[in-house]
Each structure stands twice: as structure tokens, then as C-alpha cells.
Computed example of a mutant assay.
Amino acid sequence: MSNIKGITIILIDKVKTSTDPFGAPVFENKEIKVENVLVSPTQSEDIVNQLNLTGKKAVYTLGIPKDDIHEWEDKEVHFFGKKWRVFGPIIEGIEELIPLEWNKKVMVEHYE
């Protein structure tokens, strides 16, 4: 459809694997490859707004493909050889009204 192409990033999801002897769930990290994700530097105005609202500094904004069904809120993601943490709400547009392949966006902060 377009010449714009995203990159493959790794989304870290927690998956329940078992329960401990006290009945509490035990989770393990599962790496999920998500293809065609747009990565762009966050605009200065958005950085200031997020810093004032949440105390977190947005570094990149990720464009999520329309067909993606993963949960993104408060997840860890890996790209450019670094760890990032998604924060804030997922901004989603009406799929039919957006001409390109992405209709959701999230912001990430650097995470160690």
C-alpha cells in the first residue's frame, strides 16, 4: 500500500506458567516479535506534556499496525539494542478512516 515500512520489535509479555505452593500464579517473560512497527522520536510538545502529567520522559512514539492484537500498556519492548517501557494510554484511531497500515500509537521511555 505504501513505501513506509516499520521495524520488527520485541514485546515482552508475562505468561502464567504455573502456581506456587500457596496458590499464587507464577509468570515467565515471553518474547513476542511484532513486525512493521513505526518508531519515531517523540515531539517536544508531547515530551513536555507527558513529563508534566506522568513524570515520565517520552523518547519514542511507536506506531502499531492495524492487525496487531497484543496488549501494550505497561509492557517492556526491545528495539535499537535497548530496553524501553510503554507508558500512558494507547491512542487508537478508527481503522477505516486511517489510510495507512497503523492506527494505534504508544509512547516509550528508556528502561534499564
Rank of each mutant, 00 (worst) to 15 (best):
G55W: 08
D68G: 10
G81S: 09
K57D: 06
G63P: 06
F22T: 11
K33N: 11
K16A: 00
K14E: 07
W102I: 07
L51C: 04
I10F: 01
K82S: 03
V26H: 05
G23P: 07
D68Q: 14
F87N: 03
G81Y: 05
K30Y: 09
E109R: 12
Q43M: 03
F79T: 09
N3Q: 14
N36R: 02
E109H: 05
S44G: 00
N52A: 08
V37S: 01
Y111G: 00
F27C: 00
T8W: 02
T8A: 14
K104L: 05
V26E: 12
Y60N: 09
A24Y: 15
I98E: 06
E112A: 03
G63M: 02
S18I: 08
I90M: 07
P65R: 08
P99Q: 15
S2I: 03
D13R: 04
G6M: 06
W72N: 13
T42A: 10
I12C: 04
P41E: 11
T8F: 04
L38K: 02
T61P: 00
Q43R: 09
Q43C: 00
S40N: 08
T42N: 01
I91V: 10
A24M: 11
T19S: 11
E28R: 15
I98K: 08
H110Q: 10
V108L: 07
G88R: 04
E101Y: 08
S40W: 00
K66C: 10
N3F: 14
A58I: 02
